[in-house]
């Protein structure tokens, strides 16, 4: 008989990259289904087109470049799905398809594929599309009726219903409208320990503090809740900012990262032109991740302040 010989350990846990990716897909299902239900057929087609084109882009690139195929790890599905969820419901289908190809090839594969990109592919694609095709990307018309997003309504001094916003009965991109559906998915990710609350909570809290100080709205609770539930902040905080590849690995770094995104989102929303600003806040902070990590390295066990010494204890009793 011959036996395998290798260095220890000899056992593995159950978690794999594809399992994590499919957990994210499952967690995105509530908001996906709500988006399709609320916006109708075109929303469904947008999502199918963006997922299919992301997977196809990954497959084609790796095939042409003779690289190992990684389609089965599910990461392209997640990217495609996030792109679809970030589209206005009535967008022409070539837009998400272009976005998926841009995300997978330019943002992800050109930098070395999974794990190597320094910007969130879905968000970078969204920013690319918003800047290039603003006409399509900011048109939230559904069934020929123009429905402004809640944050646009607030910015222009209109009326809005907070409960409708929370449930998702309002305008916006396909996946961002229902805070409730997003929170259900986020709860699933927390239970499965795919994400921790460090990034989302520090993001939301720092954003809230910034708004409290600089928005000039005093203690208008409805305004602040609308700011949190609207404009893609929820899907951004729970599903985009938590992207492993483009967020810090250190625990302290994750909190710092969340705080920076929160502050940037606040700046963009209060002083910027657009009412949203989440996408730009996250991808700009993505670029700071190496520096955040550099300055937030943990102290190893038994070193620094916690290292035991008899001198510190004042000698032996």
């Amino acid at each position: 008989m011959t036996f395998h010989v290798s260095s220890s350990p000899h056992v593995r846990g159950v978690e794999t990259t594809s399992r994590i990716m499919f957990d994210v897909v499952i967690a995105l299902l509530p908001t996906t289904l709500w988006g399709i239900y609320w916006f109708g057929l075109n929303a469904f087609l947008v999502i199918v087109a963006s997922v299919a084109s992301a997977v196809l882009a990954e497959y084609l690139y790796e095939k042409l470049m003779k690289k190992k195929l990684t389609v089965r790890d599910g990461s392209a599905i997640v990217t495609g799905l996030l792109i679809g969820l970030n589209m206005p419901p009535e967008v022409p289908l070539w837009i998400p398809i272009l976005g998926s190809f841009f995300a997978i090839i330019v943002v992800k594969q050109l930098y070395g594929g999974i794990g190597q990109n320094f910007m969130n592919p879905a968000l970078a694609a969204r920013c690319f599309l918003v800047i290039s095709f603003a006409k399509y990307m900011t048109n939230f018309t559904v069934d020929a009726v123009s429905t402004a997003t809640p944050l646009y309504v607030i910015k222009t001094g209109g009326e809005f219903d907070l409960l409708d916003m929370f449930i998702g009965r309002c305008g916006g991109t396909i996946g961002e409208v229902s805070a409730l559906a997003i929170l259900i998915g986020a709860a699933y990710l927390l239970v499965r320990r795919v994400i921790s609350v460090r990034i989302p909570l520090s993001y939301i809290l720092s954003f809230l503090v910034f708004e409290l100080i600089f928005s000039g709205r005093g203690l208008d609770a409805e305004y602040y809740l609308a700011q949190i539930f609207g404009g893609g902040l929820m899907i951004g905080a729970w599903f985009m900012a938590t992207d492993y590849v483009t967020s810090p690995i250190t625990k302290v770094g994750q909190i710092v990262y969340g705080i920076i995104i929160g502050v940037l989102t606040g700046i963009f929303r209060i002083y910027g032109n657009s009412a949203e600003g989440v996408s730009f806040a996250i991808i700009i902070t993505n670029l700071l991740v190496p520096f955040i990590e550099k300055f937030t390295q943990p102290v190893p066990f038994g070193m620094g302040r916690k290292q035991f010494s008899f001198e510190k204890k004042g000698g032996k009793a």
């Binding site: 395998h4 000899h10 593995r12 070395g112 999974i114 794990g115 492993y244 590849v245 967020s247 690995i249």
Partner: peptide, 21 residues
């Protein structure tokens, strides 16, 4: 052991999930 769990799957790229830390 009847199964060598380590040899079963190939190494893939790090996704920076931070679980190791």
């Amino acid at each position: 052991l009847s199964e060598d769990a380590v040899a079963k799957e190939a190494q893939t790229a790090c996704i920076r999930c931070g679980k190791c830390a």
